[in-house]
């Protein structure tokens, strides 16, 4: 499988005595997208944070382009420079303008020239409907606009793959659609993505594979047709039933 960009092999992690990941295996192919679904606390966010080396794993391996990145000898800074991550709460830097948020990493972490970085940033902002907002501070933007800036910021470093951590959970319902459309467009352009999400409609539309996490393990996986049409595992059925009852599906 030479076209696998991101691979997770038997990853486990515990907070003290409490296991949060129990042997996760998955592989994201180039231009592919995997959606991680599951209840809050099932381990979706932790898995993404472990892949971006923001947290240590206890056992197992994560591979990026075939090379193990969870080995202690690997420089985490160098790995994070090749991955892009977008957070639930945007994590924009409030003391910097939109443009400064976008050029910080290319200029400081990747040594791109400032003019070149700004040009790329303006391209991204224009594409995301944010032309003219370069010099605004994040708190002047709506939640949806802030999250678009955060996605643009992650893309400004030209990452090999994008990790999206429930990027619509902090948004007002009417703003969710624009963000999901943007991610669907990115997928259409061939971006490789690993997506933790509560938006089942979105997972169904964008993902090539859907993984259902329960208690730190992937208890069922398959293409969206199968996962949402005829899930087999009782936990998956229960989870989707609950969402259906809550009117979220």
């Amino acid at each position: 499988m030479s076209d696998v960009v991101l691979e997770v092999r038997g990853v486990t992690k515990a907070y003290g005595e409490r296991p949060v990941l129990r042997g996760i295996d998955l592989a994201v192919r180039e231009h592919g997208a995997i959606a991680l679904i599951g209840a809050s606390g099932s381990g979706k966010s932790t898995l993404l944070r472990c892949i971006d080396l923001l947290e240590d794993i206890d056992d197992g391996d994560v591979l990026l382009d075939g090379a193990v990145i969870t080995d202690p000898s690997v420089d985490p800074i160098e790995v994070r420079r090749r991955l892009g991550m977008v957070f639930q709460a945007f994590n924009l830097f409030p003391h910097m303008t939109v443009l400064q948020n976008l050029v910080l990493a290319p200029v400081r972490a990747q040594g791109v020239g400032r003019l070149e970085a700004e040009e790329r940033a303006r391209e991204l902002l224009t594409r995301f409907g944010l032309a003219g907002r370069e010099h605004d501070f994040p708190d002047r933007l709506s939640g949806g606009q802030q999250q678009r800036v955060a996605i643009a910021r992650a893309l400004a470093t030209r990452p090999r793959a994008l990790l999206l951590d429930e990027i619509t959970s902090a948004l007002d319902p009417e703003l969710v659609g624009e963000i999901l459309q943007l991610v669907a467009d990115l997928k259409g352009e061939g971006m490789t993505m690993l997506i933790a999400t509560h938006e089942m409609g979105f997972a169904r539309e964008v993902a090539d594979e859907v993984c259902f996490l329960h208690d730190g393990a992937i208890v069922e996986r398959g293409d969206p047709e199968h996962m949402f049409g005829s899930p087999e595992h009782p936990e998956t059925q229960r989870f989707l039933r609950r969402l259906l009852d809550a009117g979220r599906l």
Binding site: R49, D52, L54, I77, E78, R80, R81, R82, L83, G84, M85, F87, A89, N91, L92, F93, L104, A105, R108, A109, Q110, R153, A154, T157
Partner: peptide, 19 residues
């Protein structure tokens, strides 16, 4: 989350503190 955001962009800890 600000530190996490900065590290995720590939900044070093020192750069994250400074900027």
């Amino acid at each position: 989350t600000q530190m996490a955001g900065a590290l995720a962009l590939g900044l070093t800890r020192v750069q994250a503190m400074r900027h």
